[in-house]
């Protein structure tokens, strides 16, 4: 084992421990702000993994997009809607974490077994390295042209939708609905609570909701 391989193995170990540790922190910590910051740690360690795999463009994109945009956005969202609310403690509250843990451990065991028993066909190609950015560009404008262009429509529509949802509505005394049958920006159907008067009917509704 020469020096380069040793450095690689050590840095892989450090990145792996960092990734698993921060990911567990995201899920397990009760304070959502800590979770959001640790999520940034997960993204950074993934970017490190990309560097180890000789994919430096992807690593840079990972840092720019996921940490620079997505994670900061998540933090902003948390800061803006940080409304403290005291919820009544649930009965049998321990059941949910235990059940979730069981499912997660089961899924991990299944996927771990799958990774170990599958005879993966390892590629013998030399990684693109510095020319990766040219190759990515070439693919975007040849065989991935259609998804690349469709993504622009997707982003346009997401922007329109975000503006629609976030826009503060100007409500001029119900000018929009001349019939005044319903308050603005709501469904025309009355909520069910107003309709169901008798007790047997409401129990029926609950049955329907549970199913």
């Amino acid at each position: 084992m020469n020096l380069a391989e040793g450095v690689q193995i050590v840095s892989f170990g450090i990145l792996a421990v960092m990734m698993i540790g921060t990911a567990l922190g995201v899920v397990l910590l009760p304070n959502i702000v800590y979770s959001a910051f640790l999520l940034g740690g997960v993204f950074i360690s993934i970017a490190g993994m990309y560097l180890l795999l000789n994919a430096d463009f992807v690593a840079a994109a990972q840092v720019l997009i996921y940490i620079g945009a997505v994670n900061v956005l998540i933090l902003f969202a948390i800061m803006l809607v940080n409304k403290r609310e005291d919820f009544a403690p649930l009965r049998n509250a321990w059941v949910r974490p235990v059940f979730t843990g069981l499912v997660s451990v089961g899924l991990f065991a299944l996927l771990g077994t799958m990774v170990l028993v599958t005879p993966w066909a390892l590629s013998t190609q030399v990684s693109a390295g510095d020319s990766a950015i040219f190759l990515i560009g070439q693919h975007f404008f040849t065989d991935f042209l259609l998804p690349f262009e469709l993504a622009s429509i997707l982003l346009l529509m997401a922007m329109v939708g975000a503006i629609i949802l976030a826009r503060r509505e100007f409500l001029p005394d119900q000018v929009m609905s001349p019939t005044k049958q319903q308050p603005i920006l709501t469904l025309p159907e009355r909520p069910r609570e107003l309709v169901s008067v008798s007790s047997d009917k409401s129990s029926n509704l609950d049955d329907g909701r549970r199913g």
Binding site: P147, L150, M157, G161, I164, L165, E169, L185
Partner: peptide
């Protein structure tokens, strides 16, 4: 994947369209 997401994300937006309800 991209077309599936185009369909899904627009469906989520349309579902929440009457936003005061």
């Amino acid at each position: 994947f991209i077309s599936l997401e185009t369909l899904s994300i627009s469906s989520y937006l349309l579902t929440g369209y009457t936003k005061r309800d």
